[in-house]
């Protein structure tokens, strides 16, 4: 499990940085194609928006893994270590509940609908189901990280989960 999540973390970081770099490149190409080439590219804006969606959803899993999401942390900080473990168990369970319901079931159905109804994007013409795939993928990653955090509550990377600062 530990080896798996470590391998997952590494791959995930590379993916996120790749998405971010591609997004910057897409917006830059938009300027270059309009001015240097005088032939504005039609796909750049849409591509950048889709990449932002992926960065926002998948990056949120990474931020969760790192315990960076913003919250009011007065209460958990005041707990004894034993009680904190109970609190963490409950908090991570809530994240799993949200991920299963909204990201996996809701997002999954959205992918199914857009795939079976053949919806394509306006500029790139790519199937919208590929774009929405970020939702269930985000759900899976959230669940994996939540389970890992519940199994290894002492792990330093999960020590400050859900506490900003």
């Amino acid at each position: 499990m530990q080896a798996l999540t470590q391998w997952l973390d590494r791959g995930f970081r590379v993916l996120l940085v790749g998405l971010m770099a591609s997004m910057v490149a897409a917006v830059c190409w938009q300027v270059i194609s309009r001015y240097a080439l005088n032939d504005p590219a039609a796909w750049t804006e849409e591509m950048a928006r889709f990449l932002l969606m992926w960065i926002g959803l998948l990056g949120a899993c990474y931020a969760y893994r790192e315990g960076q999401h913003l919250g009011v942390d007065l209460f958990p900080k005041s707990l004894s270590p034993a009680r904190y473990r109970v609190w963490a168990l409950c908090a991570h369970s809530l994240v799993i509940l949200f991920s299963v319901m909204v990201l996996l079931i809701g997002g999954g159905r959205l992918v199914y609908l857009t795939a079976s109804l053949n919806q394509t994007s306006a500029a790139l013409g790519v199937p919208m189901s590929w774009i929405y795939m970020s939702l269930p993928l985000c759900g899976v990653m959230m669940i994996v990280y939540a389970l890992d955090a519940m199994l290894h509550p002492e792990q330093p990377s999960t020590e400050g989960v859900m506490i900003d600062g």
């Binding site: 309009r34 005088n38 804006e45 849409e46 306006a122 500029a123 013409g125």
Partner: peptide, 10 residues
């Protein structure tokens, strides 16, 4: 070569 804004539609 006049730049005309279009909707996002091929």
């Amino acid at each position: 070569s006049v730049k005309i804004r279009v909707q996002e539609s091929q």
